[in-house]
C-alpha cells in the first residue's frame, strides 16, 4: 500500500501537475510572460526564466514517465516544488515590494495562501514518494 502510493499515485499526481502547469505556460506563452513580468524578480531574469520554467516542468513530467529516469525526475520535482513553495512563502511574508497575481490556468483562482497550502501538500507527497518509493519498480 505504502509503495503503491509512493510508486504509482504520487508520480501520477506529479505528472498531471507538471504537464498541466508546463503546457498552460506554453499554450498561453504571451500571457504567461506578462504574468512573469508582474513578479517581483529582476527583469534580466524574466526572459530566460520564461523558457526555463516550462522546460523544467515538462522535462520533469517526461522524466516521470520513463521508469529509468523517474527517480531523478522525482528529485527534480521536489526541487521545483521547494523553490515554488519558498517563493510563495516569501510573497506571503512580504519579502518583496509588491504582491503579484498568481500563475495561470485553474491556479489563477487560488489566493496565495491557498496556493501555499496546495504546494505544501504536493511537496510533502513528493517527499513521501522519495523516501518510500522502491527505485526501479516498474509497473
Amino acid at each position: 500500500m505504502r509503495n503503491a502510493l509512493a510508486s504509482r499515485l504520487i508520480p501520477a499526481l506529479l505528472v498531471l501537475l507538471f504537464t498541466y502547469t508546463g503546457f498552460s505556460k506554453v499554450f498561453a506563452f504571451e500571457s504567461y510572460q506578462g504574468t512573469l513580468m508582474n513578479q517581483p524578480l529582476p527583469h534580466a531574469l524574466i526572459r530566460p526564466l520564461s523558457y526555463i520554467l516550462p522546460a523544467a516542468e515538462l522535462l520533469t513530467a517526461l522524466g516521470l514517465l520513463i521508469p529509468k529516469t523517474s527517480h531523478l525526475a522525482l528529485r527534480s520535482s521536489f526541487i521545483l516544488l521547494t523553490i515554488f513553495t519558498l517563493y510563495i512563502g516569501s510573497i506571503l511574508l512580504h519579502f518583496f515590494p509588491k504582491t503579484p497575481c498568481s500563475c495561470g490556468g485553474i491556479f489563477r483562482s487560488l489566493t496565495w495562501a491557498q496556493h501555499l497550502w496546495l504546494n505544501l501538500m504536493l511537496w510533502s507527497l513528493n517527499l513521501y514518494a522519495l523516501l518510500y518509493r522502491k527505485p526501479f519498480l516498474h509497473m
Binding site: Y20, S24, V26, F27, A28, G105
Partner: peptide, 12 residues
C-alpha cells in the same frame, strides 16, 4: 494534463 492545460489556457 495536456488536455486540461489546453482547455483552461489563458488568453494571450
Amino acid at each position: 494534463g495536456t488536455g486540461a492545460a489546453w482547455v483552461n489556457k489563458s488568453p494571450n
